[in-house]
Nucleic acid binder design. Structure first.
Lengths: 194, 194
DNA sequence: GTCTATATAAGGATAGAC
DNA sequence: GTCTATCCTTATATAGAC
């Protein structure tokens, strides 16, 4: 599954993530990207086969980060939905603070994937969201979370963390641990009973 | 300030907002837009002077909606930060549920504005955020809101409402009033002391 | 006010020399 | 593996007939 990626290809993918975040996928040209890594546009094709392949790799890489995180959280006891929910929130914060640019273009630019990659991507996202939903539902059934519309809780939680991708500056002001300490209670207090 | 807009121009702006939301500004061509309103691309230029002018009008219109809302909330008593905060959240929910498509492309596509419109737009946004910040600060000073990093509170609130723009389907499942009833306590309980 | 035709620029991608 | 040159398509926008 994991493909070996040459050092140069990695540099290209990183520069692309940066440009996609700043200008968007469509507004980023292969000439822009080539300039960012000191190459001519045609030379890029020695490392990647098309512009879209770059987006595919960025999206897949980040979808995998969420997927792996989910698999670990699945190991936590099912009857501790608060623990699982906190772990999910931590996962988002950790991913955002570790590789901001890549996850931003993953968040915003996936819609430019062509088939079958688009469907594949949406399937992965659906699976992730559906796990998240089960955690919420379990907490509500246990009477631990306040009764509320599941989608409202899900999407407001997920999207309340999305600003990190635009905003977080590594090494500045708030360390990842401080962010977790501030954000998780802020979000979870709205949900818990009591 | 308010420009008179012909009926046809209005239709073009609405179709454009729709396309910008679905495909993004850059990936939307004038031919796409022309097709959506049953014209040839060149005919569009009888109604608008450039593709970017469309984006400018969409962004300005929505920035104004937030600006007008803010001016009304400014009338509320300054020493009731909870009331003001709830009004701000209501404003976002109302704008999102009233004209979903337009506000979405406003949210996501403003970065494609060229100067001096970009600076103008960012100035308006800064002014809005700074009012929002003052409300948060006042609540914290009064001991009504839990002490927390102002930016963390601001951005997590604002972005926790941004999913509405992607998700909300007018007339389906949840009425705007139900949304308010669910979302505002969910968000505000995380902030309030006690 | 809409059309056809076209100007002009920029886009993704390939061929072939080095 | 990188370059120059180039192909082909698509983009925004304009000119001018109707």
């Amino acid at each position: 599954m994991e493909t070996v990626v040459s050092e140069k290809k990695q540099r290209i993918l990183e520069a692309a993530a940066c440009l996609f975040r700043d200008k968007g996928y469509s507004a980023t040209s292969m000439r822009d990207l080539a300039g960012a890594v000191n190459l001519k546009a045609s030379s890029l094709y020695n490392h990647i086969s098309s512009k879209e392949e770059i987006l595919q790799e960025i999206c897949l890489a980040n979808a995998s980060r969420f997927h792996r995180g989910m698999e670990q959280i699945r190991e936590l006891p099912e009857d501790d939905p608060q623990g699982r929910l906190e772990a999910l929130l931590k996962l988002h914060i950790r991913i955002a603070t570790q590789d901001v640019t890549s996850v931003t273009s993953f968040n915003d630019e996936w819609r430019h994937l062509s088939e079958p990659y688009l469907t594949q991507f949406l399937d992965m996202r659906r699976a992730y969201e559906s796990f998240f939903r089960r955690v919420i539902r379990k907490g509500t059934e246990q009477g631990l979370f306040r009764p509320a519309d599941e989608s409202v809780v899900l999407y407001s939680l997920i999207s309340s963390l999305r600003w990190l991708y635009d905003w977080y500056e590594p090494g500045k002001r708030l360390a990842p641990a401080d962010l977790e300490e501030q954000l998780i209670p802020l979000l979870i207090r709205g949900i818990l009973v009591g």
